[in-house]
Amino acid sequence: MDKTVTLAHGAGGKQTNELIDQVFKKHFSNPDLTSDDAAVLSLDTEKIAFTTDGFIVSPQEFPGGNIGKLSICGTVNDLACMGARPRYLSCAFVIEEGYSMEKLERIASAMEKTAAEAGVRIVAGDTKVAGKGQVDGVFITTTGIGTLQEGVRTSGFSARPGDAIIVSGDIGRHGLTILLAREDLGIDAEVTSDCAPLWECVESMLGVTQDIHVIRDATRGGVGTVLYEIAEQSGVGILLDRAKIPVQESVQGVCGMLGLEPLYLACEGRLVVFAPRQYAEKLVEVLHTLKPSAQAAIIGEVTEDQPGRVVVTTEIGAQTLLPPPGGELLPRIC
């Protein structure tokens, strides 16, 4: 096989078939993935969740994962946040001419592994090749279908005063991993992406109670952005305890060096959960038994006052606003 992807691989002829057979089919093969124009599927529930997401990340490979793993996690986690068991995915690739075939295969292989972990099948796909410079390496779009459990209804509009707020693990690792890989900051830290599929975590929480008000995965913008969205959508206030927020020491170290706020660093394997207070300890307990959520913690509560605001209790016992989300993360030095 060729060492790099060429425009001919996207032209629909023999070489396209070669690429599909030798990279994608090899890794995605399952009974529902056929060569027909569309997958024919049957679902056994009345309600489904349906979502789509595009993935662009530079570099495409980073400590703890690659764009392939990310593209599966992102979509299955969006389904999981609705309380839906991820079932089927489609994926569409736009590949830059000249992209390394070996890298592409590593990406496909990560997708295979992550899809298996998440219990989801890839049933449809598409490949396009764009000219050099028209895309940055490879872009992947995944679309997913999940089946909803009876009685589960999570939504960003459902947070209620008195709810406990849980985060399913230490925060900010994905965003920092990418920042360190992308910007030439010369900083070396043992930080790996937290990228992980989270349906298992959601399922085990639903085993404790179906009365969970909100589940969100903290992706772009991090946990802080999610909290502001929910405070706004639900018309409630949020009170966080700074000391309870789990942050890995090296993440804290780099944030200190660059003047960054870990609450605004992206995660790709972290849930923010709002549930009635009485279930909170039990939920954290079941989360602790699962690998991606072993560091889960209760970080705050929902309040009636200050709707739309996220307030933090500081280390001197005062309360200050968490600075609202502010666009691109820039290191602060001088």
Partner: peptide
């Protein structure tokens, strides 16, 4: 104006040092 971070010197060579601040390492 001046974000500073305390760090421990791990190694030194030719006026440059590798420092560690809570697991974040950098040459300075």
């Amino acid at each position: 104006m001046c974000v500073g971070l305390p760090a421990k010197i791990l190694t030194m060579k030719d006026g440059m040092a590798v420092v560690d601040a809570h697991g974040a390492k950098r040459e300075i």
